[in-house]
């Protein structure tokens, strides 16, 4: 078995951890669907500025992608504390392969999860049934790998115990709140100073949500926040950060043998 196929084997095992608990995945999807079908529809009746259901559904899809890709951080954290990562490092694979295996699994997990939500949303928003949606899949995959990079940074700073989970929940709350997932950039501009607005536009979650909204708008950019090259660049930068962070985490584990 070549190094590459061993890496893919680890990717498969890691990914299967996420989808293995069918009850939990079904519940998570159910949560996202109720967000779309209950919160989206009720708010639609309270908001006149936009068709809020169509606006919010892409936000829910990207939030789902974020949570699914971020879950790799939890798996790595548990792997570090329970000895699974030590086992991976004892296999005849390079340290880089272990790093890429986890990031690939995050990319695939996020893209598959977002794909499921997109299919469900497409039943109510026919514009999503288009080639443009399919063309976005590679971007969603890279976005998902990039978001996993943030989880890698958390693994770098978390020691054993609850701290990882607190950091992860805090980052998720902050990133979703400071994005265009739930509100348009025009509303954000009326509240935040321009420097914060720029950061919110650069937030990969905003980029992902706006990309899907542009598909719903039949290719017309949904807002000034949308820019596909920016989505790619921010995701790749975060992915780079993730690679460096996980390399550091696993090198330390290799040297010391445990999470300190």
């Amino acid at each position: 078995m070549s190094q590459r196929s061993r890496m893919l084997q680890i990717t498969r095992v890691d990914l299967s951890y996420f989808f293995r608990t069918k009850w939990l995945v079904a519940t998570l999807i159910g949560l996202n669907i109720t967000d779309m079908l209950v919160v989206g529809i009720v708010y639609k009746g309270m908001i006149t500025a936009v068709n809020y259901f169509q606006f919010y559904a892409p936000g829910v899809i990207i939030t789902g992608l974020f949570f699914a890709s971020f879950d790799v951080g939890r798996r790595v954290h548990l792997g570090l504390t329970e000895g699974v990562s030590q086992y991976y490092l004892s296999l005849p694979v390079s340290l880089d392969d272990v790093v890429w295996a986890h990031l690939l699994s995050a990319g695939l997990g996020g893209a598959i999860y977002a794909g499921i939500l997109t299919v469900i949303a497409a039943a109510l928003i026919p514009q999503l049934v288009s080639l443009s949606t399919l063309a976005l899949i590679p971007f969603m995959f890279i976005l998902s790998m990039g978001l996993a990079g943030i989880a890698a940074v958390l693994n770098l700073f978390s020691k054993a115990g609850d701290r990882y989970f607190v950091f992860a929940d805090g980052i998720q709350t902050a990133m979703v709140s400071l994005s265009t997932v739930a509100y348009p950039i025009s509303v954000i501009s009326s509240y935040f100073p321009s420097s914060v607005v720029t950061l919110i536009q650069l937030n990969p979650l905003s980029q992902g949500a706006e990309a899907l909204r542009t598909v719903i708008n039949n290719g017309t950019p949904s807002s000034s926040a949308f820019n596909l090259p920016t989505l790619l660049i921010t995701s790749l930068v975060l992915l780079g950060v993730g690679v460096v962070s996980y390399r550091h985490v696993f090198t330390k584990l290799w040297d010391v043998g445990k999470l300190q």
Partner: peptide, 24 residues
């Protein structure tokens, strides 16, 4: 601290922005 952080973000960011959208 996380619970207070969650409250801060939801109240001062999400709540503020969504309430600007809701006209009805």
């Amino acid at each position: 601290v996380y619970f207070w952080f969650f409250f801060g973000f939801q109240y001062f960011v999400y709540g503020q922005l969504v309430s600007r959208l809701i006209s009805q």
